[in-house]
Amino acid sequence: MSRERAFNLAALALLVAVPAWAQLTGETFTITLATRAVIFALAATGLNIALGLGGLVSLGHAVFFGIGGYAMGILAFHAQSYTPLTDWPVTIPGTKLMPVIWLVAILVSALAALLIGLLALRTTGVYFIMITLAFGQMFYYFAISWPAYGGEDGMAIYVRNGFPGLNTLIPIQFYGLCLAWLLVVLWFNARLARSRFGLALNAARQAPQRVETVGLDPVRLKLVALVISGAVTGLAGALFADLNRFVSPTMFSWQLSGEIMVFVIIGGVGRLFGPVAGACLFVALEHLLGGITAYWHVWLGVLLLFIVLFGRGGLVGIFAGRGAVHD
């Protein structure tokens, strides 16, 4: 068993053991923290597909996170106020059903990623970063100035949305849903990395000229990667809004885009469990250091600096060494 595999299994064991322990000892707050970590991990796994495989440094992934959040917020708002989303051409009601909300969040954020990608992928390097950042700001200010759904104040949902057969108000059950999603997406990510598409995308990141001379379009490969990536981060946004029962424009903020990227970098860019490790460490530090000092971000900065300078593979790289050649 390779060291990376051992690291991944240990991380998985912790994701099961810590909430299980918290459940047994009645520490529901720890379960909420773990849920937050798992949802951030899911959002960052989305980014890792674009960044790690495709080399797309997107500083606008909060767009998809926010779209997922607002998809949940808007659907639930209409359901709880018994008003339809629209009456024309057909009446579309709101919903409090998670599966429907997830589907909408995934589809809308994928569509947004497609449109953003069509424009942003005309550029590379620092211009790509700037365009994705600009889209993030556009969505942020749009959300602030859209009074129908709370504007700057955001909007609260009275009761967490439901999932057939579960009581999502019980923290451990909602945690289970989020963890299940994370595992499904990690499985998909692992398969994707080895698939034909993963192979071509990997090459498009390293040698775009080569990809073109074998008859493939590197930009189209990256566009598909961005769509998949955006859909995953959008799903995470819907879960995050449900965790807090609240959405606000801060879900679109560039600080959040930065945090999602920090999760990936701390954990290890392109490593399957990098985003998981990064998000868990972030949430743990936020809780532990945040309890000591309000300026805990300083220590996060020091950690980030250390990792970027000395541990290029992030946490996963530090524990498991350079990535093995995957077969």
């Binding site: 398969r191 994707l192 698939s195 034909r196 598409f197 008859g215 598909v224």
Partner: peptide
């Protein structure tokens, strides 16, 4: 002309 496989290992 077939890079669009997402689940099956390329190898």
């Amino acid at each position: 002309g077939r890079p669009w496989g997402f689940l099956r290992p390329a190898l």
